[in-house]
């Protein structure tokens, strides 16, 4: 935009680069806990007096994430302007075991996301709690690995935008439903979940017709391709 152009004329290239680097550092800090970053906080805490060239700074930061880190800066909410970082590189099966520090919560999250997906995209909370209970994860008890399970699932995963936990109106006692969150939509591959299900139940993924269509629909984009190494 012309406002950005005019703004860029008033600052040195070094100043823009420095602000860009600070934005990159800020995103990396926020990504430690997987909390999305809002445009408003970015402007207030980092960009500050350079707010008139904010779009240019964000564009350069996205380029650094792509070219240096192999990460993608993604807007998950274009009304509230919220951003997250996702991986742009494919995971490789042959990676050595200690390649990644495994977070056991991802196992828990996987179970929940899988059930929601296989059940059409929305489930009542009881189905999730009952499924987890079969795996010795009880929302009423302190779990050895996860601690306060209810808090992890309905608070932490929701704040991270992995899940949505929504009230079902006119339910007495109050019930909620679970859906995939905006982060899950960008970060999790339905196609790969279906492959996993196929192996687990010794069935062809195509046997779940609706889920198969959903996993390989155009809207799934890059997630559906099983190997797209550049």
């Amino acid at each position: 935009t012309s406002q950005v152009q005019r703004g860029l004329e008033k600052v040195t290239s070094a100043q823009v680069d420095q602000k860009t680097a600070e934005v990159v550092q800020y995103f990396l800090v926020k990504d430690q806990k997987k909390i999305p970053v809002r445009r408003a906080e970015l402007v207030k805490n980092v960009v500050k007096e350079y707010r008139n060239i904010y779009p240019e700074i964000l564009k350069r930061a996205a380029r650094i994430f792509d070219q240096v880190f192999g990460l993608k800066l993604v807007e998950i909410d274009n009304r509230n302007h919220m951003y997250i970082l996702v991986n742009n590189l494919e995971t490789t099966d042959s990676a050595s075991p200690n390649e990644w520090l495994t977070n056991p919560k991802m196992g828990l999250l996987f179970v929940i996301l899988s059930v929601i997906f296989m059940k059409g995209g929305v489930v009542r909370e009881n189905l999730i709690w009952n499924t987890l209970k079969k795996l010795r994860v009880d929302q009423g008890e302190k779990h050895e690995e996860f601690g306060d399970v209810r808090r992890v699932v309905t608070d932490e995963f929701v704040r991270q935008r992995y899940l949505e936990y929504l009230r079902i109106p006119h339910t007495e006692p109050l019930e909620h439903e679970f859906r995939w969150g905006q982060r899950a939509d960008k970060e999790v591959s339905k196609a790969k979940i279906l492959e996993f299900m196929g192996q687990l139940h010794e069935q062809e993924p195509q046997s779940w017709t609706q889920q198969y269509r959903d996993a390989y629909s155009l809207s799934q984009g890059a997630q559906a391709t099983t190997s797209s190494l550049r």
Binding site: Q67, V68, G70, W100
Partner: peptide, 16 residues
């Protein structure tokens, strides 16, 4: 210039 091999290395170092 960095390529995907560099990026993958860097990501692994971030994790470890």
């Amino acid at each position: 210039q960095m390529g995907d091999s560099h990026r993958r290395f860097l990501q692994a170092m971030m994790g470890r």
